[in-house]
Nucleic acid binder design. Structure first.
Lengths: 253, 253
DNA sequence: CTGGCCAAATTATCATACAAATATGGATTG
DNA sequence: CAATCCATATTTGTATGATAATTTGGCCAG
């Protein structure tokens, strides 16, 4: 038998994506990240989820497998599904990060992110200066040109993201790439949070140019310094917006 | 209808875990990471996998959803499943990393890992010195005591891993925790690769003690320096083993 | 040549049934 | 009374077969 379903959709897992198992996964994922189910807690069983979402067991199980693959869950026969300890959560997964941000204080989020960015991005810039291929340098350059054209405002976010991701790719180290997701999330949400995406508007373009030039010249030391300088500006921008607490509205379900 | 299955298991997805969908996921994951299916390539469809593994569509689909959740795949109706570009792969996922190591040159692996470790671990130690809770400090201390007791050899690996993971946890930054998987993999495999896990056996314990003391005193600068010093020793150990190319045998299917 | 429409391929979802694992409590036995 | 074994109930794991939804690609008409 298939519990639920033929009845009515009790709690309609909203959100887009149009895949039901995806919606279910997002809904459950959000509940875990928001603390409705704490690490160690046992989740409702498959039959329960079927009733809750009005979905078939097949669909629910695919959602559960998705969450398991992201380190949020582990299922055992006769026991059910248990929430994994936080250190196993794949926080650098795009979905998990989105669910995380949806229920986190934005200031705490930016604080953690900037801490890591200041550790990594100067070194990423330095590595890029040493390891970049001509093609990768071109990608960075083109992103920078687009930034210059876009001037300020919302349109400048996308090229900015591309710039930082291209830089990251140019570092040529697989184990650094997962941070692209974090950087992207940070830059994208910075605008919505501070409503001015550019820290120190006058220096925004020049400081990026500083990184580009250093990477072009292959000057690791200068690249490191330029990247750090940009991040310091970003710190100031964020610090200039105290507990505004505009809820980040990134996640979907 | 259910393709395959009732016939015979053509290519028996070996490996442990005892869950069929897990074995299938590991087998396909290994094939993707080893380049059998390159990014952009279209994979066999569900019916094909059913025949190949002698599994039901239910099982195959759960495996595919698992891989999708790790960023290796994306499925679309009428198209099939396509391998995602490498930058979307969740390389800091435990499984993905295992599959990656299974088909990678060990020297290249250690090179990339050490590059990242030298960037992160000194700063992790510094953050731990500033942010650690008493409980976290105790965890680090206990791990260190176990290392001292264990002396050299294989038994010293586990406490060493615990030491570094406890340090990481004490940094108290969510976005750093995913690196625990990489650090664990590195330390665990170092022993098998160099057959001497301890770099500079005489200095192995003292250098860890240096980190512990600095963290205990809350001296960020000293912690940073001590962590870097340890990593430099590790570099030397690895460098001392040129193209031995003992294949790492971590992954399972 | 252009636009729209049809058909085929593939994933998405559903319903149902049975298998396997395992925690739990109760019976059995020393 | 204690320890062991065992039956049973619960929950996930797997199989099967059917139908829906999506979308590419080509066909056809204007």
């Amino acid at each position: 038998m298939n519990p639920g379903k033929s009845s009515q959709k009790a709690s309609p897992a909203k959100s887009a994506g149009s895949n039901l198992h995806r919606k279910v996964a997002q809904s459950i994922g959000n509940q875990i990240l928001s603390g409705v189910y704490a690490p160690g807690a046992i989740l409702p069983n498959e039959a329960d989820w079927c009733r809750i979402y009005g979905a078939s067991r097949t669909t629910v199980r695919e959602a559960v497998k998705t969450l398991t693959a992201k380190g949020l869950l582990k299922s055992r026969t006769k026991i059910g599904s248990r929430v994994e300890p936080r250190e196993n959560w794949n926080i650098l997964d795009r979905d998990v990060l989105a669910w995380h941000m949806a229920s986190m204080d934005p200031r705490a989020f930016f604080s953690s992110v900037q801490e890591v960015r200041k550790i990594l991005e100067p070194e990423i810039a330095a590595l890029a200066a040493l390891n970049r291929t001509p093609q990768q340098l071109r990608a960075i350059t083109e992103a920078f040109e687009d930034m210059r054209k876009a001037k300020a405002g919302l349109n400048s976010v996308a090229p900015d993201v591309r710039f930082h991701l291209a830089l990251l790719a140019a570092a040529n180290n697989v184990f650094l790439t997962p941070f692209g997701i974090m950087i992207e999330a940070a830059l994208t949400n910075m605008f919505e949070f501070t409503s001015t995406h550019n820290p120190e508007p006058d220096m925004f373009i020049p400081k990026h140019e500083g990184i580009l030039k250093a990477v072009t010249r292959g000057n690791a030391k200068a690249a490191r310094k330029a990247a750090l300088s940009l991040l310091t500006d970003t710190d100031h921008t964020i610090a200039g917006f105290p507990a505004k607490a505009k809820k980040l509205k990134k996640a979907k379900a």
